[in-house]
């Protein structure tokens, strides 16, 4: 039987500051005046450096994956509503505390080269 030579796989961590800032920007927008969740907003992550930003949903763009803020990233009712005195940055950090390990796994699989595991060569 033939044997396979393994090749190294780049392991780029998800960029926390850009994810936090994107989520905070979303919170700023939907909490301006009356709280109004926006189900068209997505967190987009770029493959090359795993940085993220906020945009409206659209067909996929090469080299990125995206996740809906409402429902997909944060599924609890009113999760994105700011509490009294809470800043978007503070809320974003709290929200990310709850999903960060899971989000890293999602990203790893969505950018994985093979289906043999998220760290497979």
């Amino acid at each position: 039987m033939t044997t396979i030579a393994e090749s190294p796989v780049p392991r780029i961590p998800l960029d926390y500051p850009s994810v936090r800032d994107a989520v905070a920007d979303y919170l700023l927008q939907v909490n301006h005046g009356v709280y109004q969740p926006d189900r068209k907003k997505v967190l987009s992550v770029r493959k090359t450096d795993r940085t993220a930003w906020l945009r409206d949903v659209s067909p996929p763009v090469r080299g990125e994956v995206f996740y809906f803020i409402e429902g997909e990233l944060f599924s609890e009712k009113d999760a994105t509503r700011l509490q009294n005195g809470e800043t978007p940055q503070e809320r974003a950090e709290k929200l990310l505390d709850g999903i960060w390990p899971q989000l890293q796994i999602w990203i790893a699989y969505d950018f994985a080269r093979s289906t043999s595991g998220m760290n497979a060569p």
């Binding site: 289906t115 998220m118 497979a120």
Partner: peptide, 26 residues
Amino acid sequence: RRAVIRFLEKHGGQGVAPSNEAHYQA
């Protein structure tokens, strides 16, 4: 896979997609 898990959770169940678990490998 993730949408189905979320759907099951929403409807009173739990779900696991083995192929997307952190320790899954071949």
